[in-house]
Computed example of a mutant assay.
Amino acid sequence: MTLTIVTLLPSLLNTNGDAENAAVLARRAGWAGLDARVVEVESRDDLPARVDAIVIGSGTDASLDAARTRLLELHDDLRRWGTEGVPILAVGTGWELLSWGIELPDGTGIEGLGILPGRAVPDVGGRIIGDLVVAERGSRELLVGFENHARAYVGAEGSPLGRVRSGAGNAKGSGQEGVVMGEVIGTHLHGPVLAKNPALADRILTTMAARAGLGYEPGEKTRVVDAYAESARRAHLTAAGVEVEPAASDARD
């Protein structure tokens, strides 16, 4: 069986390279001995027969209307995938388009698809840019990445991805980042987030494999690459002023 990871609208929603989260999943699956492929979907006609995970990247505000129009064609599919527990990772404006809606500075708005709770609203403090560190809810994992957004996200306080340790997250002073509903994740974390946070990628892959009746166990190549990722993560945490716990190998020395 081949696991199929769909990246939606990469021509419009890949400003920060976030569509490449799909490539991260496929590569890690391959290192674990699983067949996987990435399928770029620009319209519903491009959908493969089987979908095991969906990645939606971020785009510019100039692409919002066009992206929304194309995503509306997939509204029923997205809602069904979310209900069935297919992992969906949406970043930046891709996440905002799955929300209740986006409010623009001129008073107009864009209706979202209503897949995730909350809405994006203009941030009174201006654009939020900088390193972001998040303590993932229900986990000891620290997620790292870069945030760059002109809007705050409100109305999803009951289901965040995690608690902000450094940075702004959903809004300055909110203390929260992202939103999670079942296996659907929305986040401001760029990076791409799955390359910088291998543990999150592995949780998504574990869900994908289990739904397909397969097992997922990171391969030897994965561990080599993750050592580089961990070094970069620790540098990120240190720069952000977040205390870094000793690595397991350090604790044994």
Score class of each variant (00 low, 15 high):
193 V>R: 06
199 A>D: 02
146 F>D: 00
178 G>K: 14
143 L>F: 05
210 A>H: 07
244 V>R: 00
19 A>Y: 10
195 A>Y: 07
6 V>G: 00
250 D>L: 01
44 R>F: 14
76 D>A: 07
62 A>V: 09
52 D>N: 06
37 R>P: 15
226 D>H: 07
63 S>A: 02
15 T>Y: 08
166 S>K: 00
101 G>F: 09
23 A>P: 11
108 T>A: 11
241 G>R: 01
192 P>K: 12
20 E>L: 05
121 V>T: 12
148 N>G: 03
98 L>T: 04
122 P>T: 06
196 K>C: 11
21 N>Q: 12
113 L>I: 05
62 A>C: 12
215 G>F: 09
198 P>I: 12
231 S>A: 13
38 V>P: 13
47 L>I: 05
208 M>W: 02
92 G>I: 14
150 A>K: 12
111 E>Y: 13
129 I>K: 15
29 A>S: 13
13 L>Y: 03
177 E>G: 01
18 D>T: 11
63 S>E: 08
51 V>Y: 06
164 V>S: 07
38 V>L: 02
154 V>G: 11
151 R>I: 11
81 W>Y: 01
10 P>L: 01
48 P>K: 10
166 S>M: 07
170 N>K: 15
29 A>N: 13
113 L>Y: 10
69 T>L: 14
31 W>D: 04
29 A>L: 15
14 N>K: 01
93 T>S: 01
139 S>C: 12
249 S>P: 04
148 N>R: 00
153 Y>P: 03
53 A>V: 12
40 E>W: 00
35 D>M: 11
4 T>H: 00
40 E>T: 04
74 L>I: 00
81 W>H: 07
194 L>P: 01
80 R>A: 06
114 G>C: 11
74 L>W: 10
175 G>F: 10
105 P>Q: 06
142 L>A: 09
19 A>E: 02
73 E>F: 03
90 A>K: 12
19 A>H: 04
143 L>M: 06
238 T>R: 03
241 G>N: 02
148 N>K: 06
217 E>S: 07
199 A>S: 05
85 G>I: 10
147 E>I: 13
110 I>C: 08
82 G>Y: 12
127 R>I: 02
28 R>Q: 15
153 Y>H: 10
101 G>D: 15
32 A>T: 03
96 E>P: 05
8 L>E: 11
137 R>F: 08
230 E>M: 03
102 I>D: 06
82 G>E: 11
202 D>L: 15
179 V>N: 05
113 L>D: 11
243 E>G: 00
27 R>L: 03
215 G>Q: 09
50 R>I: 10
30 G>S: 05
236 H>G: 01
224 V>P: 03
179 V>F: 05
192 P>W: 14
89 L>D: 09
234 R>G: 00
33 G>H: 10
26 A>R: 08
220 E>C: 01
234 R>V: 00
183 E>D: 14
240 A>T: 01
62 A>H: 09
250 D>G: 01
8 L>Y: 14
248 A>P: 14
203 R>G: 14
215 G>S: 15
79 R>H: 12
143 L>R: 11
224 V>E: 07
193 V>G: 09
231 S>N: 12
146 F>C: 02
174 S>Q: 04
203 R>N: 12
28 R>W: 15
38 V>D: 07
40 E>N: 06
32 A>C: 08
11 S>A: 03
101 G>H: 13
130 G>M: 05
120 A>W: 11
249 S>F: 04
135 A>I: 01
108 T>V: 01
79 R>C: 13
86 V>W: 11
141 E>Q: 06
223 R>S: 06
181 M>Q: 09
